[in-house]
Amino acid sequence: MKTLQLFSCYLIWHYSTALGDIWGIWGNFLYFISHFFSFSDLLRTLFAPWRRLQESYSGQGFSLERVLTALVVNTMMRLVGMIIRLAVMIVGLLCLAALAAAGAAVYVIWLLAPLLVTFLLVTGAGLLVIG
């Protein structure tokens, strides 16, 4: 009796709450990837100088050399920052895509799980008998 009660509880859960749970956990992982790679921050600061490293344009009197050096160094720092940020964002996007695909696969497997188990049981028993 108890086993039957549990079985019905399980089946209802498998196709209701469990789907919500998987959705929730999938959402957590997607959130984690976007948080870990901080897409919005990286995008917002894409052209910001790397670690705020900058040369100053101002100084005593005007010096073309100083201005040019500062311009080159600062552009370099911004470029370095942009390249590293872009690289990280690309890796992050790939992870996100992989996770989205994995999540979809888990969903399909979960929905078909009772059939899969039945198939394995039938196949297994058949192979055992036939030999």
């Binding site: 921050d41 920052g81 590293i84």
Partner: peptide
């Protein structure tokens, strides 16, 4: 997370 302190 990675990269958030790169702009500081």
């Amino acid at each position: 997370s990675v990269g958030r302190d790169w702009s500081y």
